[in-house]
Design a protein around this nucleic acid. Structure first.
Lengths: 254, 254
DNA sequence: ATTTTCCATCAAAGCCTGTCAAATTCGCGC
DNA sequence: GCGCGAATTTGACAGGCTTTGATGGAAAAT
């Protein structure tokens, strides 16, 4: 890696996480802390980054902080494992509907290699591929729901009733044997349209979602083809889901 | 492989990966590091790539109008002045269509105080208001044009044919007395729909756009109500535009 | 007061420039 | 088409410069 590239990657990484410690940055680019310090001095002089004690922060956030973008370390390892496992289920050049939500966001991070065609209503996912030429990304229209970076409303529902896709990658607030639930009423119509539009529905649910019931019912288990979860999921329930002919993928933690 | 072909492949490879070390490049074209060094010196002189310590980087072609990820320090002071002046023309609580493009982006930065209702097809503009609660933002659907962060295609056109707004804030690649021109064909349909959807059309054009003709014709001067420019605009042409009953606002540089 | 972080310095490693001989290509007369 | 000398290109190498990672003491945060 050239010094230029390293600085560029530091800046890009900071762009993504807003703030990072020196050690985190050093690990990320595979250089020593001294080198990162020097790089940051240069980047600060160029005005894109602000050094702080113990790390650095981005000065001009391009993609403003969505509720999750990076500082959402809640179940991070599990979500990344689920992201990798779920991306493994997608074949190259497929068309994929991508739901909004942190878990699914981690799936999207692993999709670029498949050169997929992506349809989404998530602004963070769109930003992820804003400069990726290998991905064709269709963003649904809609009203921007501020904190979450999701597009909602009739315009969004309409988009998903018009398109068709090979796979839909989605998530929900909770799952029981009676079905799935979600917390944001505005999303339910959209998620139903997504499921109708896709030939195959993959649900990404970390283990905390199992047995949990969120505010609003989304659908029963019938439309679900695959569930991707992490190794913390209760084995008993996994078994019951499999008996209902749902393929359950348990992502191994590295 | 001829030297010519080798240089071409080096450039193409760099175009793809953005950065590369000398060894990587040498391996890729099957030549020695010395040769690659010499090739890069030539390519650098021709202006397409930039040599760096240990490798080379593609030189981002300072392509026209808006670039999503790169800094647009080009005419920055002028654009900021235009942004402030143009925002001054918007009244509180109006509905505003916001075009894609760096100049218009600077207008958007000054809009939050007006608590407007914004309709846009620009991802950067959407990101700007991703966490602003005072702004209601509608994003058009569409295919994401990489690097520019613009949503294009039928879905985008459709959105703008459906909505109505008080004002459209737009920009273009060039203006002459015959009309406006723009460089990206995909945008023209969208911009025409924007103009039809708005009761009042404001064009933001920095002085470099005056007398310039871009690739494709957009429209004549008739639909334009206001032009906002900077103090570098040729006074003669400003006068001629005013005679055609177009309001021209010249933004003062601070 | 203690721990963490920052800065200056330094030796080692890696990289760039300029040079040179070998290899390749080209021009040209036959 | 063929041979031969000239010109160009190529890969290698030495000497000088830049970058890197480590270390010890100063500065800052808690």
């Amino acid at each position: 890696m050239t010094p230029e590239e390293r600085k560029h990657r530091l800046e890009a990484y900071l762009q993504k996480v807003e703030f990072a410690s020196l050690e985190e940055l050093a690990r990320h680019v595979g250089a020593s802390v001294s080198t990162v310090r020097r790089d940051l001095t240069v980047l600060e002089a160029s005005g894109s980054v602000k050094r702080t004690h113990g790390g650095a922060r981005i000065l001009t956030p391009k993609s403003d902080e969505f509720i999750f973008s990076a500082r959402d370390t809640h179940q991070l390892a599990e979500k990344e494992a689920i992201g990798r496992a779920c991306a493994g289920l997608i074949r190259p050049n497929q068309s994929v509907i991508v739901d909004a939500g942190t878990t699914v966001y981690h799936v999207a991070k692993n999709l670029e290699d498949k050169s997929p065609q992506i349809v989404t209503n998530s602004l963070p996912v769109a930003n992820l591929f804003a400069s990726a030429t290998r991905v064709e990304l269709v963003l649904s229209g809609g009203v921007l729901y501020p904190r979450l970076g999701v597009l909602v409303g009739p315009l969004a529902v309409e988009t998903f009733s018009k398109v068709h896709a090979d796979v839909a990658v989605m998530s929900a607030g909770g799952i029981t044997l009676e079905g799935l639930t979600n917390s944001h009423g505005l999303l339910i119509d959209i998620q139903l349209a997504m499921m109708r539009a896709a030939a195959r529905v993959i649900m990404c649910l970390d283990h905390t979602k199992f047995g949990r019931r969120s505010v609003l019912p989304l659908c029963d288990l019938e439309p679900i083809d695959v569930i991707v979860t992490d190794s913390g999921a209760p084995t008993e329930m996994v078994e019951q889901l499999r008996q209902r002919s749902i393929e359950v993928v348990v992502a191994p933690l590295p």
